[in-house]
């Protein structure tokens, strides 16, 4: 690994005939957060002045980094000047540029620093690059993790498009997005994407978990007891037990709640009958 050390630089004024490239090294998705810097660093390679930062500046003066004579060093400079905080879209742009310029990705520590080390992870960067601008904005805005994107980007293009549409319409939180992606992964072969996505997921979740969900609904209905008294099994029915909870604020309150419980004995019996019927007691 070779790190950039710029020994010489000078300020130059560019003329109308000079070739200026503002785009090639603009790897940053976070345009709005680009520092307002009056200096515009550049490298002169093959007769073209390549901007290395401050890409949107409208300046006639450039700070020419004279040591930089090749694309490899230019990209190193861009990454160094860009700082430490690279999001996944930036990284996908860097990786795209490395391939486009026929450079060696192992020369760039920015990937390792961001825990991108294996082929699978670089493949994900490849696919992030191809996403729509709106989807990229969502990924950056919500800081969606590489792990979640690794699931999304294994889906076929039609499903990715549906997720993109959903995201733009609902702009879900990070956790909601993760749940959505998991659910689509789980049921993607059976989801009818022409229907409402949430309804479809609900339908399929119920299909695969009918026995448990029906049991839970039935027993929850039976164990509804008034006045803040709750009856529940605390270990997902792994053991045959029910736990009764209530708060009391006075002796009278205590007696009232005991009376309610006494009046609810039929419900408790019915609950144990259901537990027995389901082999849980």
């Amino acid at each position: 690994m070779r790190f950039l050390t710029v020994k010489t630089m000078k300020i130059i004024e560019i003329g109308s005939t000079d070739k200026i490239d503002k785009d090639t090294f603009n790897i940053f998705y976070r345009q709005n957060s680009q520092k307002k810097n009056p200096l515009v660093p550049a490298a002169h390679i093959n007769g073209v002045y390549y901007l290395l930062s401050n890409f949107y500046a409208d300046s006639k003066e450039l700070v020419l980094l004279e040591d930089i004579k090749c694309f490899s060093d230019a990209l190193k400079a861009v990454i160094e000047i860009g700082g430490e905080d690279y999001n996944l879209v930036d990284l996908s742009n860097i990786y795209y540029l490395i391939k486009k310029l026929d450079l060696n990705k192992n020369d760039y520590s920015v990937f390792r620093k961001n825990n991108i080390v294996n082929k699978e992870q670089f493949d994900i960067l490849d696919r992030i690059f191809l996403l729509s601008d709106n989807f990229k904005r969502y990924i950056v805005d919500k800081d969606i993790s590489l792990k979640v994107l690794s699931i999304v980007l294994k889906f076929n293009a039609d499903i990715v498009k549906k997720i993109e549409e959903y995201v733009l319409k609902n702009y879900p939180s990070v956790s909601s997005f993760r749940i959505l992606v998991n659910n689509i992964y789980d049921y993607k072969d059976e989801i009818d994407f022409k229907n409402n996505l949430e309804d479809e997921i609900e339908r399929l979740k119920f299909k695969y978990n009918r026995k448990r969900y029906e049991f839970e609904k039935m027993i929850d209905d039976i164990l509804k007891i008034e006045n803040g008294i709750t009856v529940e099994n605390k270990n997902n029915y792994e053991t045959c037990s029910l736990n009764i909870n209530f708060d009391i604020s006075s002796f009278e309150d205590f007696m009232a709640k005991l009376q309610i419980l006494h009046n609810s004995s039929g419900k408790i019996k019915a609950a144990f009958d259901i537990l027995k019927e389901n082999d849980l007691c």
Binding site: K147, S150, I151, K154, N182, Y185, D186, Y187, K188, D189, L204, K205, Y208, N209, K211, R212, Y213, F215, N235, N236, Y237, E238, T239, N278, D279, L280
Partner: peptide, 30 residues
């Protein structure tokens, strides 16, 4: 989910067992 394209195992909503592991709901195990 991260590693494989699909699996029957992720479709089920497991319960958390007494040891913290995910398991099928007890009546279905039985």
């Amino acid at each position: 989910r991260e590693k494989f394209d699909r699996s029957i195992l992720t479709k089920y909503d497991y319960i958390k067992g007494l040891d913290g592991k995910l398991r099928y709901f007890k009546p279905e195990r039985i």
